[in-house]
């Protein structure tokens, strides 16, 4: 996340350069934040078993199951917090949970 002058906003930003009122310009700047390190357990995608029913994708709270051309790809571990909801809903055992 940058200010309008293109300066990165981090703990070194001076008051003169911070965005007025705490406005954040542009959407989705949290994509820079790694929440994957919250994980203690991790879902593992077993592609061979997956029938691409996609029931796992809408129930992910962390947008960690990328979809491309109507098919799910491997987990995005940068965001995945390892909650295991996807594991529970998979009818085909195509996801297993492992300890980190």
């Amino acid at each position: 996340m940058k200010n309008k002058k293109g300066m990165v906003i981090d703990e070194n930003i001076k008051w003169q350069d911070i965005t007025p009122g705490g406005i954040v310009y542009g959407g989705g700047t949290s994509e820079a934040v790694n929440t994957g390190d919250w994980r203690t357990k991790k879902p593992v995608f077993i592609e061979g078993k997956c029938k691409q029913c996609l029931l796992c994708t809408p129930v992910c709270p962390d947008m960690s199951i990328p979809i491309k051309d109507g098919k799910r790809a491997d987990f995005n571990y940068y965001f995945c917090k390892g909650c295991g909801i996807c594991y529970e809903v998979c009818p085909f055992d195509a996801i297993k949970m492992e300890n980190e």
Partner: peptide, 28 residues
């Protein structure tokens, strides 16, 4: 800037931690 600027979304009213809150107040 405005919420209804089609090409350029903005967000107002963040949770502001001690790291930034004071700089925001100083600017204000």
């Amino acid at each position: 800037d405005s919420l209804l600027n089609p090409g350029y979304p903005i967000s107002h009213g963040p949770y502001d931690t001690a790291t930034f809150y004071m700089e925001h107040k100083r600017l204000q």
